Amino acid sequence: MAFGEQPAYLRVASDLREKIVNGALPPHTRLPSQARIREEYGVSDTVALEARKVLMAEGLVEGRSGSGTYVRARPVPRPIARSGYRAGPGTTPFRQEQTAEGVRGTWESRSEQEGASVEIAERLGIEPGDRVMRTRYVFREAGEPMMLSTSWEPLAVTGRTPVMLPEEGPLGGCGVVDRMAAIDIVVDNVAEEVGARPGLAEELLALGGVPGHVVMVIGRTYYASGLAVETADVVVPADRYRIAYHLPVK
């Protein structure tokens, strides 16, 4: 193969991808069979199979048991707005994560104590094994799961206080900033880091995705005068949402 020349299976996948993108193969259309691909492109069964695998890994097609491989409907990505902290009534965990105006969402959560892993300890500036409160959330918009979030708060900060459990007590369901203010801790900045990776099996199951789908992960940490008071991982399906930042210029 000459320098810069694509392998045959990638050339076939590229042509089929183009047909999917330009509508020649619209959503829910059955992808040409392996035999048809072999004949149309003059390639082997192995090349035809690998080309189909590429399209499946890219999320453009899906297999249906006993029926064949079909073009997937491509959702129009919706924005998840990230702007600074918003004070005032209604600053709930959902509003903390999804700040787009007009969004009405629900969430469910579960909290439990655990020892901090090496990674979480580093993010919180504590020792591995130190006790933290871990809270897992599933956020829904119009009943559809849209994001997952797992947060960790050091019990050295919140332990034996009214805000030890994020979803219980007098400030249950409020955001981090308001909860910390209730115990005289002033949150003054937040850091976020955005990355992407293949979704874990349990994440995709919760979000309604299929194996191989990519998720975006927002690693977020709240600080009060340099002290990390909460860190979280927010997981969003990359094919359905886009992260949109709108930040003030100071």
Rank of each mutant, 00 (worst) to 15 (best):
E18N: 14
K19D: 10
K19M: 12
I20E: 00
V21S: 06
V21Q: 07
N22H: 12
A24C: 06
L25G: 01
P26T: 09
P26R: 11
H28K: 15
T29A: 14
R30I: 10
P32Q: 02
R36P: 01
I37M: 02
I37T: 06
R38M: 15
E39K: 06
E39S: 06
E39W: 05
E39F: 04
E40K: 00
E40N: 00
Y41L: 06
Y41P: 03
V43C: 15
V43I: 08
T46A: 13
T46G: 10
A48T: 03
L49P: 01
E50D: 11
R52H: 05
K53S: 13
K53N: 10
K53D: 13
L55P: 00
M56G: 07
M56W: 02
A57R: 12
E58A: 14
G59T: 11
L60K: 00
E62Y: 02
E62Q: 02
G63F: 04
R64L: 13
R64Y: 15
S65L: 13
G66H: 07
G66R: 04
S67H: 13
T69L: 04
Y70C: 09
V71A: 04
A73I: 08
P77D: 08
P79Q: 08
P79V: 07
A81M: 15
R82S: 11
S83P: 01
Y85L: 11
A87R: 13
G88W: 02
G88L: 03
P89E: 07
P89K: 08
G90L: 03
T91W: 12
P93T: 05
F94S: 05
F94T: 06
R95L: 14
Q96M: 15
E97H: 15
Q98A: 14
A100Y: 06
E101F: 09
G102Q: 09
V103W: 12
R104I: 11
T106E: 14
T106K: 14
E108V: 10
E108R: 10
S109M: 11
S109P: 06
S111K: 09
E112P: 06
Q113D: 08
E114D: 12
E114K: 13
G115E: 05
G115A: 10
G115W: 07
A116V: 01
V118Q: 03
E119D: 02
I120W: 01
A121L: 05
L124I: 03
L124F: 03
G125I: 02
I126Y: 01
I126H: 04
E127H: 14
P128E: 01
P128I: 03
G129Y: 12
V132Y: 03
